[in-house]
Amino acid sequence: MTNPYFSDELTMLREQIRRFVEAEIVPHGDAWEEAGKVPREVFAKMGELGFLGMRYPEKYGGADLDTMASVVLAEELGRCTFGGFSADLLVHTDMASPHLANVGTPEQMARWMPGITSGKSVCAVAVTEPGAGSDVAGMRTRAVRDGNGWVINGTKMFITNGVHGDLFFVAAKTNTEAKGSRGVTIFAVEKGTAGFSVGKKLNKTGWLCSDTAELVFDNVRVTGDHILGEVDKGFYAIMKNFQNERTVLGAMAMGEAQKAIELTLDYVKDRPAFGGVLWDKQVIRHRLAERAAQVEAGRQLVYSAAWKDAQGMDCVKEVSMVKAYCGDLVNKVMYDCVQFHGGMGYMRETPVERMSRDARIQAIGGGATEVMLEEIAKRL
């Protein structure tokens, strides 16, 4: 039976991405983890295949698809077992570049979008700060008018693609009189702009092949044509894209969880134990069956939320459910998969060991579970 959420085009896209992941990502992921970065050529290869601009207009190298295409991409990247690679790509395609697509002028789109869809220009989004993550209202980075331009000062933290990125969409407070999250503006800042630097590359528990950085803005001057959208209205653009970001993170989490279950099934069906194999033990069979059911439920929750988003429906509650449920569930799945691998599950040579480290951030990044539960509660 055909999946009601996916057209034949999206089904073919899924198969194409899965083949690419198996041929071009899985064999090289360990080396990228060791190096702490994903080679730029990988972005270019994915750009050539059309994977980087699926949601954007054809005239800029895109395919004019909708949210369901992002879900397909995120799920299949999640299956690669290298969460850092998945994070780098999804930040580029679904967390940073949508700011340009959503509110960019035709001139800005023509200037920057072709590089993004081709993979020649890697982008990042800089909202989070040392003291302001999910709480955007706590932002301290400032931008003040200076003649026909703006001068930005501040620090951003935990920025994916921060070290090797080319184009950064930076949120800064432009109206200090505005209360809370109001008075924020988004600026496009290019690598090499005077005063803009990488403070330091951050050393993480997981996502080792994803470069994550602290960014410093020291009197960074940009012209007015680097403003995305309206001055002081950037918070609304940030909130709008949070829905897309949280949906793709949920899809990525379910791809990871499904792959971990498959790897664990292969292991327990082959691992000798007590005169048989581990799969013979009912407690293991039942726990994996339970997790498989939960992952299927999570996957359907992702699909439903993404479909609503593609139809232009209000889906903040559903997307918040996706982020809260899937972010927690992937960690529960990884715990069991490591447990059922026994000692091997604690060895760096075993994919589930890496996947368990990579998954921990899923309950934090893009909106912590506790914040998401509050968003759900407001709408009950």
Rank of each mutant, 00 (worst) to 15 (best):
D8M: 03
D358Q: 02
C337Q: 03
G276C: 04
A194P: 06
A292F: 00
G327V: 06
G275C: 07
M347T: 07
H286D: 15
V189P: 01
K269A: 10
S121H: 11
S320M: 01
L265K: 12
A96I: 01
L278A: 07
E230C: 12
G327L: 07
G104P: 00
V198R: 14
K332Y: 03
A213H: 11
T193A: 13
H28R: 09
E34K: 10
K45L: 10
E190Q: 11
M321P: 00
V21W: 04
F51M: 14
G229E: 06
D309Q: 15
E296V: 04
E9A: 12
A377T: 13
D166I: 00
L73Y: 06
A292N: 05
K120E: 15
S210F: 00
E15F: 01
E256F: 01
D135S: 13
M372F: 02
P351H: 11
G62I: 03
A74Y: 05
L100T: 05
E370I: 14
V71Q: 11
V283K: 13
V184K: 10
G104Q: 02
E48F: 05
R140V: 05
K269R: 14
V222C: 09
I159L: 07
L77M: 13
R285Q: 14
T67P: 03
R142V: 14
G50L: 08
